[in-house]
Design a protein around this nucleic acid. Structure first.
Length: 294
DNA sequence: TTTGGGACGTAACTCTGAGT
DNA sequence: ACTCAGAGTTACGTCCCAAA
């Protein structure tokens, strides 16, 4: 607790002592650097790592396939694991808010992720300073305005990147890839992420793979639409939330709100599609295989 | 053998919806 | 507001079969 209080004296706003330990252990920050006002920028950190235990309990029943490893949801695969050999890779559900649609012209203003394995520190969220105005139309959708993110106490993506990389490393199962899940990942989230990495002269790690839940949702409803004789069915996140009866009091498009919804949706979809972890892995692509970045 | 019609496959085009 | 993927529509070519 003393670390937190002293850390806050520097103007750094971290919710728990967890992130301080985390920064020290994984991002190379020393206590001295953290506590010495002369050794670091006077910037507020708004990155938050949740320390509460998080469990998803929506998945109720089990299915067995011929291979004997089918799962009702990703979380259940974790529950099913019996040995180190059986341990699947990390699955991170993430979402970003941006200043617009064009990854070349616009910037990320919020980033959130949730590790589906749950447990302590299973979520990570931060506002990001885009160093430019947030259009009013975007502020209306996200409730994130210029005055909220264009401040010296909000980290830029380049500030967040080392912490993010260290965080993901801390969640990654040894020798296993990281599966990132987002809605419309191929066309939106991944190109934005790749662009921000490029701006930092960094590369997305080779063992990061991306799953587009939009593609999976389309696959799922395709047969249902035919059977029902419908012409088309919506597969946006809101429609999927309603389909599965997932409650959400907040109506604003915020990254963690959407991550929380998608975390439940993706488990329902993998259940409906009878997708194992390996099946989900087969649906994934590398960042370089997503929408052309140039 | 020729012709016409139906079934089928493919390519090109159009429209819709997904993300902030 | 922008871009892309996917689904739907349309046009066209090919193949097969039956009838003249």
């Amino acid at each position: 607790m003393s670390l937190v209080l002293r850390f806050n004296l520097l103007g750094n706003n971290v919710w728990t002592s967890g992130p301080v330990r985390f920064l020290k252990q994984h991002a190379g920050f020393s206590s001295g650097k953290l506590l010495d006002p002369r050794s670091c920028e006077k910037r507020h950190f708004t990155t938050r790592v949740q320390t509460l235990e998080t469990k998803f309990t929506e998945t109720a029943s089990w299915h067995k396939t011929d291979s004997g490893s089918c799962i009702p949801g990703i979380q259940s695969l974790w529950l099913q694991k019996t040995s180190e050999h059986d341990q699947p890779g990390t699955v991170l559900v993430f979402d970003i808010e941006t200043t617009g649609f064009l990854h070349k012209d616009h910037r990320i203003i919020e980033f959130a992720l949730r590790d589906l394995s749950g447990g302590k520190n299973c979520t990570f969220e931060t506002l990001i300073n885009p160093e430019r105005n947030v259009p009013q139309v975007v502020a209306a959708v996200t409730s994130i305005g210029t005055d909220l993110v264009c401040r010296p106490d909000i980290p830029r993506f380049s500030d967040v990147l080392p912490t993010l990389l260290a965080y993901v490393r801390s969640r990654q199962a040894p020798g296993k890839p990281v599966l990132w899940v987002a809605h419309n990942a191929k066309n939106f989230d991944v190109p934005f992420l790749a662009q921000e990495f490029a701006r930092c002269s960094a590369e997305i790690p080779a063992d990061w793979f991306f799953v587009d839940s939009l593609s999976l949702a389309r696959k799922l409803v395709k047969s249902e639409v035919k059977l029902a004789g419908e012409k088309r069915r919506l597969v946006n996140l809101e429609a999927l939330r309603e389909r599965y009866g997932i409650c959400s009091e907040d109506t604003a498009h915020r990254a963690m709100r959407d991550v929380t919804i998608l975390s439940q949706v993706i488990q329902k979809i993998t259940f409906d599609l009878k997708l194992t972890y390996e099946g989900l892995k087969n649906e994934s692509v590398r960042a370089s295989d997503c929408r052309k970045l140039s």
